[in-house]
Design a protein around this nucleic acid. Sequence first.
DNA 1: TTGTATGCGTTATCAT
DNA 2: ATGATAACGCATACAA
Lengths: 345, 345
Amino acid sequence: MNLHVRRATIADVASAAGVSKATVSRFLNHREKLLSPDIAARVEAAVAQLGYSPSPMAQALSRGRSRLIGLIVADITNPYSVAVLRGAEKACQDAGYLVMLFNLGNEPGREQEAIQALAGYQVDGFILNTLGRGSGVVDAMATQGKPAVLVDRRHVGMHADFVSLDNRAAVQQACEHLLDGGWRELLFVSEPLKGVSTRRERAAAFSACMEAHAKAARGEVFESEEGDDEGLQAALQALHRRAQRRKGVRAAVLAGNAVVTLRVARAVASLGWQFGQELGFVGFDDPEWASLIGPGLSTIAQPTDEIGRTAARCLIERLHGLEGPPRQSLLPGELKVRGSSAAGA
Amino acid sequence: MNLHVRRATIADVASAAGVSKATVSRFLNHREKLLSPDIAARVEAAVAQLGYSPSPMAQALSRGRSRLIGLIVADITNPYSVAVLRGAEKACQDAGYLVMLFNLGNEPGREQEAIQALAGYQVDGFILNTLGRGSGVVDAMATQGKPAVLVDRRHVGMHADFVSLDNRAAVQQACEHLLDGGWRELLFVSEPLKGVSTRRERAAAFSACMEAHAKAARGEVFESEEGDDEGLQAALQALHRRAQRRKGVRAAVLAGNAVVTLRVARAVASLGWQFGQELGFVGFDDPEWASLIGPGLSTIAQPTDEIGRTAARCLIERLHGLEGPPRQSLLPGELKVRGSSAAGA
DNA sequence: TTGTATGCGTTATCAT
DNA sequence: ATGATAACGCATACAA
């Protein structure tokens, strides 16, 4: 059985139908205009019979557009990124685009490399969920001159559409839920803020919220370094002590993302505490295991799928020629109440 | 600031260096042979000055090879798939290949579509982690005539390299660990076996292992349907009763993958049981949250990264011209012992 | 050793 | 309405 059955080309179709390549191409691309019925029928038959489909590569070369979208993701290991990626990829496919994936593996220096590589394949645009430190990307983007949409993390000075969770509203909702439940001594635990916009926004919103409720509640921010389990435990104990000094006040943590949630859960286990008892808890992101830890961990679920689809749609609109200033889509989160934030007496 | 700064082409370099396109091309591809020092220097300078890099698309069209690898994954939501994908993508990048991702979203019918789409972009080969039901893929592969490597799931009759966990050895290790700990009434809980090779292999290995220890232990297999929580709970209760009928014997579950682990954990919570007490447990896959459920869930960790890298390397070897019959790489799992399988009295 | 010409599979601009 | 023909950016067989 001959393996290398060369894919049929437009030339094959042309000769099979007894017409010129140009005619075949017209039949394929501008079917409605300029068509003589019998010729159209002959071409159609030839196409069907040879199972012909045009080569996207050749089309890309000729048209300058590839129907390819470059998706650069900071860390494919991060379930959040994957969830977004999933939504984006689906939307792209539905719109007839294919996704080329480039995983940075958390190495910031590779942003340039990624953009170069993807641009080489003539991707029509980019969906970027990158680290966002430094703005090297800005110039590269401008250089390549292709539209891009940023997901979850802003890039300073970058002139592009942006889609993300509405962090401010989500933080506010979480805080008020905790306060309503009688948790009055709060700690926002985040990965190191550095330049990461999402983390900063959440931390800032937390602080603002605490100030607004300064009479009833107190709150601090703790940056948890990877591997520094002792530091986190110490911070939780300090939190607990602060709460005890104020009679009848209970302490709770707001975790900045699922990675932090995991760390906090480990620390709580080490300390022998129970969620919902010694420590209240709400965390960003809603991993499938949240309901299985202790009495269930309350979370703020992100509409990851919707974020991905929105990003893809934004980009595709640009590809279709939409002009105008950068747009911003902030999607609402959903608070999932579980045992870890149960209201106290 | 002019945006559409057309990428420099080989023609630009040629005229800048005052030579022909062919010379530039030769300088790029066959640097060692056929080189006159001064010309080489001029070309090199021109390349550097214009920041020229060849268009992979045009190269692909001309060469018939694209340095692209198509990665088809059954379900991007599955952390196992992602972990493998990560290893594979890294290995590909290291070897100078880019990955085009196609997510099936668990829709079996899209395998063909995926292969067609990817083949259109002239991918040099495929890494397949697909559903594996039916063998429609076989013909398509043969048709496209490109090498492929299967990950985790075999395709019946498919003539291709295969890499996966050594399921038989892993099951055996898990069973013996449980038996050593005094867990003598076992239940293997799997997603519906259907035609999925991994599930069948694990179930078969479990049954074989139980027969081998028939004097001391008993085991059954349960297929857990998505959403059928009652069925699973009933199966666990039946298991428990069987154990009680044999004085002093304790019951344990071996879960076929992380999805099942989650279901079992939910059921155990519903029943008010404690892992390590009323029910022993070992599960395939080692999610990050395994240590946080109850006393910690014992697991069999797969070398996902290594599986991915191996798959990529296999494929790339084929791309480099390696001939010969399909190869098979079975990588060892690692048993992580935690509280859920603690030895009894 | 270097340049010319052709092909890769399409699209698009001309004539016809 | 249809057919040559020239791009698109690159590689290469062949000629010089």
